[in-house]
Nucleic acid binder design. Structure first.
Lengths: 202, 202
DNA sequence: TGGTTTACTAAACACCGTTCAGTAAGTTTG
DNA sequence: CAAACTTACTGAACGGTGTTTAGTAAACCA
């Protein structure tokens, strides 16, 4: 039956149209301005139409989040190029923080906003995130003999926690408390991370 | 003039009534349900009245944030009791993470939500946060001779970043990616932190 | 061609933060 | 004491949000 094939194709294209518009708005105007109504207006459909393709806003955001995880994973693969395991770890940490600070709204969606997580079902494996997380675990694992951690999973947790903490405090304006200029903050972060890498090495 | 004194007193009492109600709602129902309208209903005034005492919602949240910083600072002082500088640092890190995970909505207000930061003026010194931050810097500074950091400010940055990262990932549900039970996650965090403390010590 | 399914939307509902005109009480002044 | 003024408060509105539902018009099928 060719017609139902085409219908299925059209349905998928509509979904792509919606998340494409939403992704653009996320990057350009931030998540606060990415409303169902604004997305609908941009693609020239009624807001109600979006609900024929997504159950609610959380499900829509969940799908954009998936795209964002793909994107950051691709960025990791592009930036982590060395053959030396320790150097790779350094590159990954640097890439993570650079990506987060350069793309605060997508970072928000991936790691801070509550909305997309409400759509993660109990049986859902949250694959797109898991792939990116696995990249970290693999990178740590490859370097484990040169790290002062007894367990690579613990090392991964510490590195992710630290990276996320630095990014989140920065993009949510909490670095203000240091009473430094933004340049000094950036310098402090870089030097602190460098020293941290030094410390965790055998 | 006694009348204007009384008026001033009444004005302050009204502000306390408002933030008191807001603080209660924050703790009990979370920040998403803490709306101007809900606060007004709780104190049995019209929503418009709140705007006679606070410029906008950001300013109101900023004041509640200040209370939260006082509270977490008091918690630090209660939990950090050892005489050994390194032990004090350990106690502080533990207290921070415990407080954050036990009080996710107040933690949100202090370190994640954008709203209260919009009320921090350029000349504003954000004192209540600074006092708590200084507690960290002082604690690190006292232990600096036993730490493998060349600079206590860098050490403070790493510790805060790590602590915030762990809390934020936990309360915003991102630990899901580990595909562990919540108990296993808690165990992992504890052991990772313990090992981290070991590593940064001389 | 007639009946049914599909795709879409206008309008409404229940929220939200915020503003403003109007009112009633409290205070000061002649 | 009464009139003038000031203060404290609110009802109602404005423009925004996510979401639901009844109704319509086109596409499809028999």
């Amino acid at each position: 039956m060719g017609i139902s094939d085409r219908k299925e194709r059209e349905k998928q294209e509509m979904r792509k149209l919606i998340i494409g518009a939403a992704m653009d708005m996320f990057i350009k105007d931030g998540y606060e301005k990415t409303s169902i109504r604004n997305i609908a207006e941009k693609i020239e459909y009624s807001p109600a139409t979006i609900y024929l393709y997504y159950k609610d806003k959380d499900e829509l955001f969940y799908e954009i989040q998936g795209e964002a995880f793909d994107q950051i994973h691709a960025y990791f693969q592009a930036m982590v190029v060395s053959n030396d395991p320790v150097e790779r770890l350094r590159e990954l940490l640097r890439a993570y923080i650079e990506y987060g600070i350069a793309n605060p709204d997508l970072y928000d969606l991936m790691f801070i906003l509550r909305s997309p997580m409400k759509a993660v079902q109990e049986e859902d494996s949250w694959d797109n995130c898991h792939v990116a997380f696995q990249f970290l675990l693999d990178t740590v694992d490859a370097a484990k003999d040169q790290l002062r951690f007894s367990n690579p999973v613990q090392a991964g947790m510490i590195l992710w926690g630290l990276g996320h903490g630095i990014i989140a405090l920065t993009i949510r304006d909490r670095m203000k408390v240091t009473r430094m200029t933004e340049e000094d903050q950036a310098v402090l972060i870089q030097s602190a991370l460098q020293e941290f890498m030094q410390i965790i090495l055998k």
